[in-house]
Design a protein around this nucleic acid. Structure first.
Length: 269
DNA sequence: AGCATTGTTTCACA
DNA sequence: TTGTGAAACAATGC
């Protein structure tokens, strides 16, 4: 689930529940999630420190750890969530997934954990383990945040080359935060075919697309995530476009399953 | 059983 | 250089 809106929610969970608490221990034993660090490397860098701030750019988030400390980077991957828990394991924030069929203290899918000196926890819960925790993450390699990007920067960074426009929207180095579901929704909202070459868009189309990026992300942030986006229920066989009742088409664009409206999103401008 | 999956990285190849 | 597609990563769900 994590695209930009979900990561922003996770960032807010950390801000509400973890800032200012002293780190007493760190479980960084999952060498895949904590790659490329050795077990204990993150623990040694963080024990005794305090999280003093938390930031987000695109789908990446990171925490400040006080004077001279490294940044603690967190990426949620495909299935990661941030959970704040009491000493007995009962979650107090961030735990929609965590709640289901699980007893307090069941940390089966916790892949990384900070223990605070009061016994409480910050957990990265991630069944699929494609999330990632690392020190000093290279966030400067990311493009501008999709929630804030200006029209001029959008044109400059995204609308160039012959790659499909959807592939450009998914390129985190061009614009950070858009995932597969958001990309389809944005292109549908702007009535642009996902396979159009990015550099071929007209000025009206590029303005429409930029506005759709900002609006769809704003909507998802306010309504509770990418699963609240209007196109989500229509990403299935036999579905019809909720605007004009034309058939929803699907195929592979930019290596990902892609859905679009056959009539409103023609392959040619 | 076999297929799908919201993400990223790497590689072979054109 | 630019771009594509596939595979890998790991695990779950239909």
């Amino acid at each position: 689930m994590p695209e930009l809106p979900e990561v922003e929610s996770a960032r807010a969970v950390v801000e509400r529940g973890a800032l200012g608490r002293r780190i007493a221990d760190v479980d960084d034993a999952d060498t895949y999630v904590c790659r490329p660090h050795r077990p204990g490397e993150i623990r040694d860098a963080l024990v005794g420190r305090t999280l003093t701030g938390v930031h987000r750019r695109g789908k990446s988030m990171w925490c400040d750890t006080g004077d001279g400390g490294p940044e603690l980077g967190v990426h949620l991957g495909m299935s990661g969530k941030i959970v704040i828990a009491d000493p007995d394991g009962t979650e107090t924030d961030g735990g929609d997934y965590w709640r289901r069929g699980r007893e307090p203290g069941d940390h089966r899918f916790a892949r990384f954990a900070l223990t605070f000196d009061d016994g409480g926890w910050l957990l990265l819960v991630d069944p699929r383990r494609l999330g990632r925790v690392r020190l000093d993450p290279p966030v400067d390699e990311l493009g501008p945040d999709a929630a804030d990007i200006t029209a001029a920067r959008f044109r400059d960074a995204v609308l160039k080359g012959t790659a499909p426009i959807k592939a450009r929207l998914l390129d985190q180095q061009a614009i950070a935060g858009i995932g597969n579901l958001l990309a389809d929704d944005i292109l549908w909202a702007a009535r642009i075919h996902p396979a159009r070459p990015a550099g071929d868009l007209s000025r009206p189309e590029s303005d429409r697309l930029h506005r759709a990026v900002r609006r769809e992300i704003r909507t998802a942030l306010n309504d509770g995530g990418v699963h609240t986006l209007p196109l989500i229920p229509y990403r299935k066989d036999g579905a019809r476009c909720p605007r004009d009742d034309a058939a929803m088409a699907h195929g592979m664009v930019g290596g990902r399953t892609t859905w679009w409206c056959e009539k409103e999103q023609p392959p040619q401008a």
